[in-house]
Amino acid sequence: MEFYPPEYYEFFICFNEGDYYTCHDLLEDMWMEEKGNLFFKGLLQMSVALYHYSYGNIKGARVMMQTANDYLQGYRPKHWGLDLEKVITYIEACQALIPSSIDRVTYEEVDNLPELPRLFLYLEE
């Protein structure tokens, strides 16, 4: 059985609870120690995209989802106990739903946006 940094385990908990802001902080700390690690950066970008979308920054969500998709491609199909086929399928489903003709909406209008699917992440050995 492989052991990972505590922040990685916490990332799964926060992600599954929908706390994408905290996910960003956890992954950023890991990424700062290993800046060439596009796996961390891809998960970080996906979390940031979901956070942006939650408050109406549609363009930011679109851009971050695309970079997350790009960064994670090289780690398929599985890396660090994470099934990236599921993650990339999820990212692509979100990309299909995020409006392409809108850059920003007010926080009051966020509920009118297409609802993104939920993804629950699990470590698999």
Rank of each mutant, 00 (worst) to 15 (best):
E2N: 08
E2V: 05
F3N: 13
Y4N: 00
P6F: 03
P6D: 08
Y8L: 06
E10I: 06
E10G: 06
F11Y: 15
I13A: 07
I13D: 10
I13Q: 11
F15E: 03
N16Q: 02
E17W: 01
G18M: 01
G18R: 05
H24K: 09
L26P: 08
E28Q: 09
D29A: 11
W31A: 05
E33D: 07
E33Y: 06
E33N: 09
E33I: 06
K35V: 04
G36L: 02
L38D: 09
F39K: 04
F40L: 03
F40V: 00
F40I: 00
F40W: 09
L43D: 03
L43H: 04
S47E: 04
A49V: 13
Y53E: 12
Y55C: 09
G56A: 13
N57P: 11
K59N: 12
M64P: 11
M64E: 10
M64S: 13
M65E: 07
M65P: 11
Q66F: 09
A68S: 15
N69K: 10
N69H: 14
D70E: 12
Y71S: 06
P77F: 01
H79G: 01
W80G: 00
G81T: 04
D83S: 00
D83P: 06
K86Q: 07
I88C: 03
Y90H: 08
Y90C: 03
C94G: 12
Q95P: 08
Q95K: 15
I98G: 13
P99L: 09
P99R: 12
S100A: 14
S100P: 10
S101N: 15
S101I: 08
I102H: 12
I102R: 15
V105D: 12
V105W: 14
E109M: 15
E109K: 15
D111E: 14
P114A: 13
E115N: 14
E115Y: 14
P117C: 06
R118E: 09
F120V: 10
L121G: 02
L121D: 04
Y122W: 01
E124A: 02
E125R: 10
